[in-house]
Design a protein around this nucleic acid. Sequence first.
DNA 1: AAAAGTCCTTAAGGTACCTTAAGAAATTCA
DNA 2: TGAATTTCTTAAGGTACCTTAAGGACTTTT
Lengths: 190, 190
Amino acid sequence: MNYELILNNIARHIPLDKEETDYFVSRITFREFPKKALLLKEGQVCNLLSYVHSGALRAYFIDGSGKESTIMFAVPDWWVTDMYCFLNGRPAMMYIEAIENSCIFQIRKEDLDELYIKVPKFERYFRILMQNAYTREQLRVIENLSLPAKERYNNFLDKYPHIARVVTLKQIASYLGITPEFLSAIRKSK
Amino acid sequence: MNYELILNNIARHIPLDKEETDYFVSRITFREFPKKALLLKEGQVCNLLSYVHSGALRAYFIDGSGKESTIMFAVPDWWVTDMYCFLNGRPAMMYIEAIENSCIFQIRKEDLDELYIKVPKFERYFRILMQNAYTREQLRVIENLSLPAKERYNNFLDKYPHIARVVTLKQIASYLGITPEFLSAIRKSK
DNA sequence: AAAAGTCCTTAAGGTACCTTAAGAAATTCA
DNA sequence: TGAATTTCTTAAGGTACCTTAAGGACTTTT
């Protein structure tokens, strides 16, 4: 198993000694998901936090009328879960699917809670992750409120060129909150 | 000075002994802001994190065309700042104004960074705050993408009845991402 | 290799929400 | 207290984005 990517991610924020590293590694499990596999389904217990080693995931929400909204894409070196439900022990509101064959590390909620106690430095690590996630979502709210779809699309391409290469236009449209037909019109008008 | 509210907030998440409490209290400063005062202006250095003891604040963003979008309201027992700029030492993108006479505790970025080192338990406290902030923003993104304005307005009234009582309809409209005129139409149609 | 499904696009007609303007009600200020 | 400002509303015309439908290009499955 290749732990380099995930351990480097952690090392960017907190220093771990050998023992702490081994303990962390012993708490995560590795899984492969083929393209189209679901890591999480609405209604399921959501007690896993996932880290993308390779491949790509998409988290999405299906509303009452059946419309899909993409909540986030996760590419290598990103963490993802239905965070609200993971933290509060609620049944999942989202779906998480592999949009490519993906290699994933996962940690269970109870192991994470124990990790915080055994290696308190991880409080800092996840504080920083949560801060980044918070400010990213807040910027997205601001964009959604203040920019028309065309500019949001251009910003998406600028900010996430590597994601844009991997996902379909339909998925980008559902991330931007518009229909594929309208995204098509936007692209034509460039 | 009345530290009860803020210390209770902290006690809900981490236990502090007398010494730790005193240290924390020594790092926060108290300020009063009259209604309409600005705590933060776009372009300013944003090196303060604010906690609302009483009153109410509003954080908003002004886009290129002069349109205001309300990012969040902060009522008693809430923390608020332009988090992205606070964390990254960037000039503020937002305005934060008192919408009532308000009593505020503030901590400076460098004191917070030192607090994490002297009392690492605060890593946990702020991790939990950031988690909650993240999931709140994410739910807002989902709502903005999947619900029409009328339902977003009803949800706002359900979720934040105490805020709805304090702020103007114009401010609610700018939080929902609609014009005051359209909010008026929505209210009429109930 | 054919069949089935999904994606992307085009186009026509519809709707949610915006812009501008203006007046009445409420609040702030002198 | 009266004047000024801001809020909330109504209404008419406009635009961004949606819905439905259909066809061609890929991709996946058999």
